[in-house]
Design a binder for these strands. Structure first.
Length: 667
RNA sequence: GCCGACUUGGCGCAAUUGGCAGCGCACCAUACUUGUAAUAUGGGGGUUAGGGGUUCAAGUCCCCUAGUCGGCUCCA
């Protein structure tokens, strides 16, 4: 018997030839092995000199293997119920997996229950996943009933073309995984797949669930046929599945669309149209506070405030290029027909007016309104600009994707020399302001052009300079920087600030975008110190993105428990009995005089009911007063989390409330 | 835009095979005035998203439109 030398989890060992992972890794939570850097099944036989390590089911790779194996079981279940279903692809995704099928009738919610039953049967059988190497020719014959798989075989080796399908085929060997019934040894199902897989189906049963069905375009292209996709989630244990489901429930509780209605902040009246919000008085207070603070900070940071109209003649967006590139995303024009008098002369020229989808061309016209000197730069123009974009009906989502929104938009006109300094300043300003609103966990994304894509206009050399400058500034910030190749706007590269919220979700917040294109199109120039005419660089930036969207993000971040400075009602006074109402009013009057948003609940409800109501309305401070308080010149606090602090002297109570608002802290 | 599901008083929901549109909260009125998350009694409120069709009969079945939700595609 010959012997091979193998490094196992960092330790050199001598094994019998033909040894595999099953013999090496007896820990049942190890589901695969990494051999010489490649993920392999436990059944993979090791060779002399191999370096292998166990892959735990709870590791990122292990979870992917679990979820991908669950996808195979789902596909087998679907074909067991409907043999006519054709297989698309079935990769693991964040928290779960999906599998696409070409079926006559889409799946209904009841179908998912039946499929879970079928999956349970497969899982309980303990089917083994057996890897088998094949060739293009053989596989094409074997899978002649699976047209989508055959298409993937044809794309093998071309990863760009395969895209999402990379779980099926790769650059190396073409493999099929057979699902084998351990009782009979028969192959009961098979799928084109790179693997690896779990040793058997049993481990899937610990914590999986099918979650929803939806349509998805084959290979992600809207010109292709739509397949029916089933999503599922899978975890190593029941507890982890339950924890995942609780996270989803928590996210649902925080949903700004739900809180917007519950807290009476905003709504989307059907009469107005999709994606067009109205802010109610309470949402209006919050929005005004957000805007006022933003204005103050912009003013302090050297921005000048400008205003521009909501509509413009078409030529402005023709010159900017927006009509050529994004006409589909704009509301259709208001058409003013040509008027002709009785002699056939044009009395009034015909014109098309558009609602503006962007503010930049207006700010550019302000720049152009006079001759500019290098002494005028940097010129920073700020506007809360309302823009309208005809978003496709299917993409609208609460306040985060709307058709009418207000951007906190600014355009900075700078010389190439002070570009870097100005970008550094802007990034610092943006991060500082986001922190004031309570977001403090960021990373940056650098979106660059895709080489060779004609969508991106402008001189490649200029793109290079711009990208390098952004990269430098982003790196200097010390924040994590994630590249986003191909993600740039057609006119320039950008940095976007991604913020993580209270439950760890990331939101794209601010963008800082360089633009070498619009100055060219509008022929912008300034006079340099040597008297020559030079072209300024333009920086677009928005902090909130749109106020609506930021409002939605903050609502979810705080789960409606806004810090006092943002809360629509900051203090509610609840008298223990009617007799103590006048006393509470004297305290409320002092707060009111200091600008605090305070009301006294003098309704007929019982005190306990009032506490319940205002707690559910998420009011930061509930002030109670009864006989004991009045006698002591004090007042009692009750907070949203239920805790209380009784008998606080009135002066101290007022000071505490004012300080919490002033300091923008959470309570 | 595409696929699917959904739309019943302000909000959350119910209504069997097509057979009297109901409940809770909220609202209004009256009584009550209580030390930390729901006082009691009574009352008002819906052309079942809008339109068309089938039927003796439609919240329920069919078609169209609008809107919402979940995905896909998109997001200057």
């Amino acid at each position: 018997m010959s012997v091979i030398k193998v490094t196992v989890d960092g330790t050199a060992r001598e094994l019998e030839a033909g040894a595999d992972g099953f013999g090496l890794f007896t820990d049942k939570t190890i589901v695969a092995q990494r051999v010489n850097g490649e993920l392999r099944d436990l059944a993979h036989k090791l060779h002399d000199g191999d370096v292998t390590e166990g892959v735990l089911i709870s590791s990122p790779d292990g979870l992917n293997i679990l979820r991908h194996s669950a996808a195979h079981v789902l596909a087998q279940a679907v074909q067991s119920i409907n043999p006519e279903a054709k297989l698309g692809i079935g990769p693991p995704i964040t928290d779960g997996f999906y599998y696409d099928f070409d079926v006559e009738t889409p799946f209904a919610p009841e179908d998912l229950k039946a499929l879970e039953k079928a999956m349970d049967r497969i899982i309980r059988q303990g089917q083994r996943f057996i890897r088998r190497v094949t060739t293009d020719g053989e596989a094409t014959v074997e899978l002649s009933n699976e047209p989508y798989k055959i298409e993937l075989i044809g794309l093998k080796g071309n990863q760009d073309a395969v895209g999402e399908g990379s779980a099926e085929v790769g650059a190396g060997e073409l493999t099929i995984y057979d699902n084998v019934d351990p009782q009979t040894g028969n192959v009961v199902w098979k799928d084109l797949c790179r693997g690896p897989h779990l040793p058997n189906t049993r481990m899937i049963g610990n914590g999986y669930a099918l979650t929803r069905s939806a349509a998805a375009y084959w290979r992600g292209n809207e010109n292709n046929k739509q397949l029916q996709r089933i999503y599922g989630t899978a975890w190593p244990t029941k507890d982890e599945l339950r924890a995942h489901q609780e996270r989803l429930e928590e996210a649902a509780r925080r949903d700004h669309r739900r809180l917007g209605a519950e807290l009476d902040l905003f709504s989307f009246p059907e009469e107005i149209g999709s994606g067009l919000a109205v802010f109610h008085p309470k949402g209006g207070i919050m929005r005004r506070v957000m805007e006022d603070y933003s204005r103050k900070r912009h003013e302090e940071s050297g921005y000048e405030f400008v205003y521009s109209p909501h509509i413009t003649k078409s030529n402005l967006f023709e010159q900017s290029g927006h009509l050529a590139w994004y006409a589909d995303g704009m509301f259709p024009p208001m058409v003013m027909d040509e008027e002709v008098d009785e002699n056939g002369f044009v009395r009034k020229q015909g014109q098309n007016y558009y609602l503006k989808p962007m503010n930049c061309p207006f700010h550019i016209l302000i720049f152009k309104s006079q001759a500019r000197s290098y002494r005028d730069l940097p010129l920073r123009m700020f506007e809360f600009g309302s823009v309208y974009r005809y978003e496709k009906s299917g993409v609208l989502h609460g306040l985060t994707r709307v058709r009418g929104m207000t951007q906190d938009d600014a355009h900075l006109f700078v010389t190439p020399d002070n570009m870097e300094e100005e970008l550094t300043k802007v990034l610092g300003f943006v991060l500082g302001l986001l922190r004031d609103y309570g977001l403090d966990d960021f990373y940056l994304e650098l979106s660059t052009k895709e080489e060779g894509n004609p969508k991106f206009v402008g001189d490649p050399a200029i793109w290079e300079t711009a990208t390098a400058t952004l990269q430098k500034v982003a790196t200097a910030s010390g924040l994590e920087l994630v590249p986003d190749p191909g993600g740039a706007a057609f006119y320039g590269p950008k940095i976007s600030v991604q913020a993580r919220d209270a439950i760890g979700r990331t939101w794209q917040m601010s963008t800082i975008q360089l633009d070498f294109n619009l100055p060219e199109r509008f022929d912008l120039e300034y006079t340099a110190s040597d008297g020559t005419k030079q072209r300024p660089v333009m920086i677009h930036r928005a902090l909130f993105g749109s106020i609506e969207r930021f409002f939605g993000v903050l609502t979810e971040h705080y789960a409606g428990h806004f810090p006092p400075w943002l809360a629509p009602v900051q203090v509610v006074g609840v008298p223990i009995a009617e007799a103590f109402s006048p006393y509470l009013h004297t305290i409320a009057d002092r707060l009111k005089a200091a600008g605090v948003r305070v009301t006294i609940d003098d309704s007929d409800d019982r005190m306990q009911k009032k506490i319940r109501n205002h707690t559910m309305a998420k009011v930061p401070f509930i002030l109670l007063a009864g006989g004991e308080d009045e006698a002591a010149g004090a007042v009692s606090f009750r907070f949203r989390d239920g805790h209380q602090e009784n008998g606080i002297p009135v002066d101290e109570a007022v000071a505490r409330i004012l300080k919490a608002i002033e300091d923008k802290v959470q309570v």
